[in-house]
Measured scan of single mutants.
Amino acid sequence: TEDEKKIQELLKRANGDVSKAEKLAQSQGNEELARRLREYANK
C-alpha cells in the first residue's frame, strides 16, 4: 500500500531504526504515519 511504501522509505532513511523513523514521521507532522510505523514494527 501507499502507507507501507512511506513506512519503508522512512525506515530506509532511519537505517531500519523504528524509533528514529517514528520521530522522522512526527517531525513531518505525520502522527498517523508515526502510529502506523509503531504498529508495523510490532508485527
Score class of each variant (00 low, 15 high):
K23P: 00
E9M: 04
R38C: 11
G16W: 12
K23I: 10
D17I: 05
A21L: 05
S27I: 12
D3V: 14
G29I: 03
Q26Y: 08
A14C: 15
N15R: 07
Y40P: 04
Y40C: 11
N30A: 05
V18K: 03
L33R: 00
D3Q: 09
N42M: 10
Y40H: 09
N15I: 03
T1A: 13
K12L: 10
D17W: 04
K23A: 13
E22G: 04
E22C: 14
E39V: 02
E39D: 11
E2L: 12
L10S: 03
D17Q: 03
R13A: 15
A14D: 00
N15G: 14
L33T: 03
N15K: 10
A21K: 00
V18F: 14
S19I: 12
E31K: 06
A21W: 01
R35E: 07
K20W: 09
L10V: 04
G16F: 09
N30C: 14
K23E: 12
R36H: 07
K5R: 12
K6C: 15
K23M: 11
K5G: 09
A41T: 08
R38V: 08
R36P: 00
Y40M: 15
N42W: 05
Q28F: 09
E2C: 15
D3M: 15
L24M: 13
K6Y: 12
E2W: 11
R13Q: 15
E4A: 09
G29L: 04
R35Q: 10
Q8A: 11
A21D: 00
K20C: 15
S19T: 12
G29N: 06
S27F: 08
D17V: 05
A41Y: 13
E2T: 10
Y40Q: 08
L24G: 01
K43P: 08
I7V: 06
D17F: 02
D17H: 04
N30Y: 12
Q26H: 09
R38I: 08
R38G: 04
G16Q: 05
N15D: 11
E39T: 01
S27D: 14
N30L: 15
L33W: 03
L10A: 08
I7P: 01
S27P: 01
E22V: 15
S19W: 07
E39L: 02
L10Y: 09
A14R: 00
